[in-house]
């Protein structure tokens, strides 16, 4: 094991990179081992964990899911009834989405209450606001995918609301739906946004979020 690491390290010189990621000190006020109050500094990390869980469960759901009006509902039924632990898998993905929203809210409240968005961390706060919008986007697009009554009509209402925006609303709604009604094109669009576009954006914004935390450190105690 050690020799493999040495082989790689001699060529890529990973040492400084790893110590940059792993060896930074964690201040006492954010350390659960030293003070129970540090639990409020946990929420952000938990959001990240839940997002990983969503990616993992999402991958397994995607093995079976078919994004077409003819097959979407049947493939979800298949996942729930025929695959091993499929029902639980879908449930975890759905509950995980709610859990992510709860943790995002708690994380945001913590940052507001500890004033952690202040100089020098203004930019990280702004990135965080975009991450909040991305999570909302995941939720909105994911809701349509099972293609049941609730999915279809909730999306219809949601897109109709977008259509209510003056001037650009009509165009935006048609672009999102791929036409004047929620249908086959809407489903493929929402699917691609849910599994390709948003994860790509999420990766970029999360990377920026983490980079800034490491660069600026955890904010000092109250």
């Amino acid at each position: 094991m050690n020799r493999i690491y040495q082989f790689i390290d001699e060529r890529l010189h990973l040492g400084p990179l790893i110590s940059e990621i792993a060896n930074h000190p964690v201040p006492d006020h954010a350390n659960l081992l030293k003070t129970p109050k540090a639990i409020i500094y946990c929420f952000g990390g938990m959001v990240f964990f839940i997002l990983l869980l969503q990616v993992l469960t999402g991958v397994f759901l995607m093995f079976y899911y078919v994004p077409s009006p003819d097959h979407a509902y049947a493939s979800v039924t298949y996942i729930r009834q025929e695959t091993a632990f499929g029902g639980l898998l879908q449930s975890v993905h759905r509950v995980g989405a709610s859990a992510a929203v709860v943790m995002v809210m708690l994380h945001m409240l913590r940052v507001v209450l500890t004033g952690s968005y202040k100089n020098p961390r203004e930019l990280n706060w702004v990135v965080g606001v975009f991450l909040l919008l991305l999570v909302a986007g995941f939720s909105f697009t994911g809701y349509l995918l099972p293609w049941d009554q609730k999915a279809y009509w909730a999306t219809t209402v949601g897109v109709n609301m977008i259509a209510g925006i003056p001037l650009i609303g009509g165009f935006l709604a048609d672009a999102l739906r791929g036409g004047s009604e929620v249908g086959a094109l809407t489903l493929t669009r929402f699917f691609v946004i849910h599994v390709m576009v948003l994860p790509a954006l999420l990766t970029i914004f999360l990377a920026a979020h983490f980079f800034m935390i490491r660069r600026q450190g955890i904010s000092r105690p109250l």
């Binding site: 990621i21 792993a22 060896n23 930074h24 000190p25 964690v26 201040p27 006492d28 350390n31 081992l33 030293k34 020098p120 660069r215 600026q216 450190g217 955890i218 000092r220 105690p221």
Partner: peptide, 21 residues
């Protein structure tokens, strides 16, 4: 750079390392 250790008001004597603790 405003790293944790250089922050004013930081009184931690033996801060815990991120990895593994």
């Amino acid at each position: 750079m405003s790293g944790i250790s250089s922050l004013p008001g930081s009184t931690d004597k033996n801060p815990t390392p991120f990895y593994p603790d």
